[in-house]
Design a protein around this nucleic acid. Structure first.
Lengths: 201, 201
DNA sequence: CCAGAACCGAACACTGTGTTCAGCAATGAA
DNA sequence: TTCATTGCTGAACACAGTGTTCGGTTCTGG
């Protein structure tokens, strides 16, 4: 089970590719471990020597890629600190560069596990990024702002994936920014009360 | 299987209540049909005479309530047609009035089926509402605007539920409006290009 | 070359699903 | 109240999928 052994690398690679191919064909839910084994031509006991279950394989398959995205995010510098489209744009770009995998693991047929990971990841980044720039006694607490931006970004991502990536990632980012940034600015600038009370009741 | 027979009503009611109670205790995924039958004290064959499977029971359990929400939405009149918080606010209010059921069926432990229904429902309403008021050649297509607003609203809803409904539904609605409306207005008013190009690159 | 490690595959126990059917009990209508 | 109808029961069954075990085989890196 050490990855400098060629047999281990071969086995894992075969499983990952079989998983992605099969999810694209039949969807994650309608998929048994045995299906993956047959496609990958790997023995049953071998699978369980590597992964606890189907979900662990899914997570592992996405893990390297997620690490890459995390590095992109950490390396990012400059830009408007209030702009949620800064990290979200990296996510869009990353998805666009790995369309096949994203289609399999984050599309409608791909289960919710990976999406939950991305959700948490983006939420953490946005909390760090927006936190210092929102007024302490903000009428809209930081948690809600982050949840708003995160859910919206992932919603756009999933739809973009399921539509087959029709647009440029920059177009997606620009669209997301156009929709998201004004509201965040309004909240950060304390313009909320006016808006809220204007329509409350 | 006709619902003017008392036996049918009793059986279904027992199944619905058992489902909700058990989801709250253990989560939808970690729940077998047999668990529900034991709790409801209903025979196995009886269950399958009423529902195709566990998911069908879930859907049916939420169905009456969803119909009520739909009626609220249809009855709504007045207000800013560009404001996505108009229908979303009804959803928040509805959830607040039925906390126990929403906690069971739409919380993190509640699976994704009901959430998908709500997503589609809200998206349809918003498409109808916003469609006529967005410029035809909008740089951000109506589909993306709707997806943005819908995902954000449901994201806030889920978090609100899982936090145990700490805030007033009006506060939630106001917060959502403060975050969402400015962006929608910007897009509808054609201010998008400025924003987008300002930060693009 | 070779000791150690990974792989194989068949068998097994287990959990959960969905169906069937004969007998029983409650129901609503007359 | 009667009674044909309809729903409920519960046990049994076939089936699909999971996760584990183990003796034998094959490959790998040193």
């Amino acid at each position: 089970m050490v990855d400098h052994d060629r047999r281990v690398r071969r086995t894992r690679r075969a499983l990952h590719e079989a998983l992605i191919a099969l999810v694209l064909e039949r969807g994650y839910d309608r998929l048994t471990v045995q299906d993956v084994l047959d496609r990958a031509d790997v023995g049953r006991s071998t699978f369980y020597a590597h992964y606890r279950d189907k979900e662990a394989l899914l997570t592992a398959t996405f893990d390297d890629m997620r690490a890459q995205l995390q590095r992109d995010v950490d390396a990012q510098t400059g830009g408007d600190p209030l702009d949620p489209a800064r990290p979200a744009g990296l996510l869009f770009a990353h998805a666009h560069r790995n369309q096949r995998v994203y289609r399999a693991l984050c599309g409608r047929e791909g289960g919710t596990v990976v999406l939950r990971h991305l959700h948490r990841m983006l939420a953490e980044v946005l909390t760090t990024q927006l936190g210092p720039h929102l007024p302490a006694g903000s009428p809209v607490p930081i948690g809600l702002v982050v949840e708003f931006c995160t859910s919206a970004a992932l919603g756009l991502l999933v739809r973009w994936i399921d539509d087959g990536f029709p647009d440029d990632p920059r177009t997606m980012t620009a669209g997301y920014r156009a929709l998201c940034l004004p509201g965040v600015r309004a909240v950060a600038g304390g313009l909320v009360a006016d808006e809220a009370q204007m329509w409350l009741q």
